[in-house]
Design a protein around this nucleic acid. Structure first.
Lengths: 196, 196, 196, 196
DNA sequence: CATGAATGAGAGTTCATTCAT
DNA sequence: AATGAATGAACTCTCATTCAT
């Protein structure tokens, strides 16, 4: 009888926006930005194509917003790691598992998709350039060194070792899911890369 | 001035076809099938766009033909491995290096690109499903077991270990080149995955 | 708390309708029918987009209704002129000034916008075809002739002279406002067109 | 049997480009940039929509290119006037007639359409800002003054008088063609605006 | 055989109009 | 009566594929 009030409308908008983001994340992560059609996102979200444009100015903006948001979340999560009471080995183990976990995988894949995109919007580009370097490696160098001193990791340039390790982890995240009969490697097996 | 004879024409056709394949391989491998435009291939091959269609019915067929041919070659090459006098460790080492080598990388990347493609023609699909399994793993299981007996590799299900290892190697092949500061991991470091 | 009675509801309806028309006039006059978005009108009127459709079936109908109403008003106003005690020269002068006056300009511009519109509804079309002719020229021919006899205007076919004059005035009305450094020409300067 | 040679292809391209420009000019001039659909231009030119994009990057670029080219031509033409041996009155008379001439009308209308466009591409904006003012008025001020001294024109600020006069001429150019029964005013009648 | 001009199906985007509340 | 979320037709633009030469 009466129009919805402001609060209710805000809630609807928030829900829709989240719904679109979830759908977009799922498709973008699997197929990259060019491989994703707006119609796929709309259909995944169960809405019409046109509606997406009431929430995001363009496909590019949707992609960009998503990537930035997820990178900020990922950054925070990794930041928390530093205050963890775990041993260096277990810290990296936990991080690795969280990166390869089904639940987070879409997010990390999206970030990595962004790195491959042809013309990444400027704003994303800046984040991306420093993603592995700043967000992952810089923060983990002290952890790795501590672990080396404790004899948990192999000797050698810590930056190089970490760069190689996360090159592997990142590339695994990008793998299509469920192709391999045995799935993704066990974390402990992966971490042998860091061992002596 | 005089018309070319049949043999000469065949030779031109073969050369052209090879030229197109080389160009296509380079671009497909880097950008995937959807990211590649026929104009890019034509330009890389130094020919006109229309000419490609005299040699290949469609973009899809060009892609498919390429993948199948490269998979067959790769299969042969891996087959040769079995008659190698090297130690099991060195056999896998050599294979790994050859897969990650700049020269072969395009080929392997293309094959892996095919696994991500949307509607892979049936014929390719069959090959692909069993690519790692049949071509790589089956042939290497005996090698690995021999290495395990010699104490060069860690214990555990050989098929699982190999599947995991090549999941890592394959995913590295797919990585965009030259993003990481330290490049791809050293082969010896990668092979720690197989070590105890 | 108690429901509004019929009379009050009617009043609200009338006010709303007027409010929408005013907003529409302002935007249509400036931007033409294709350049105007319903959202602009709604925003100018301070109401929601959907509400417009309770008062007007479509954008086209809103435009049409507006044009017809304004043409009828303009017709009356010009009709009044004939009973004016002013001299023929001053009558046309007054009319010209009123047509170019900021306050009336929107109305006249809208009418002229209608002439350029693509698919003007039949009803408007009929009015428009004869707008200058019937509403303006026919009524002013006697005035002009009187002025010619008094030596105020140049000789020549009165219909042709008036048609040319109002072609100029009309086209000036359509000019975007405030582009020219010196603004629109002074009425007296314009009226030289009618002079000898 | 053999492909067309370079010269022939260049000719085809030039012809097509000209053909598209002519069609675009005709439609843009009548309907403005937003009122013109690419399909209209394609259909007017007798080609497919897609083909336009091999010659112009976008609708905006097509419009811009057209406007700039025509403005440059118009500028030259007006520049030539200064070396004319005609009397000041006849110079302006000739210019007026050329502006209102059916053949040139499209061009002038397009330029004026550009002034009304919502978001004129930057490049066009710069030209346009100075078009009336610089190109026309500046060059004609000396002519008008000479005419005033010869008693051919009314007294008063020459810039103001010219600005008013060309405001009228420009606005007439924008008029839809062939609406008025008597057509556009005779040049000599128009020029009474400049007379005393 | 070879070219690149030309086409048309399909993708991204806008906006008048409808509908649930 | 009023809102603004939702839809879908239409428009701009891209690119695999065809065709005239």
């Amino acid at each position: 009888m009466s129009p919805l009030n402001k609060q209710q409308l805000d809630q609807i908008r928030d829900e829709r926006k989240e719904q679109i983001k979830q759908a977009a994340l799922k498709i973008f992560a699997c197929r990259g930005i060019t491989g994703t059609k707006m119609s796929m996102i709309a259909s995944e979200a169960g809405i019409s194509e046109g509606l997406i444009y009431r929430y995001f100015k363009s496909k590019d903006e949707l992609f960009t917003d998503l990537v930035i948001e997820l990178m900020e979340e990922a950054g925070k999560e990794i930041g928390n790691l530093q205050h963890s009471p775990e041993s260096p080995f277990d810290q990296i183990r936990t991080l690795t598992q969280s990166m390869l976990d089904e639940n987070n995988k879409y997010a990390f894949r999206l970030i990595l998709q962004a790195r491959k995109a042809d013309k990444v919007p400027e704003k994303v580009g800046q984040f991306l350039d420093q993603y592995s370097e700043k967000v992952l490696i810089d923060r983990l160098v002290p952890v790795l060194i501590k672990g080396q001193q404790a004899g948990q990791f192999s000797e050698g340039d810590p930056r190089e070792l970490l760069s190689w390790y996360f090159t592997v982890v990142n590339s695994l995240i990008m793998q299509e899911l469920g192709i391999e009969k045995y799935g993704l490697p066990d974390t402990d097996v992966l971490m042998r890369i860091l061992s002596r």
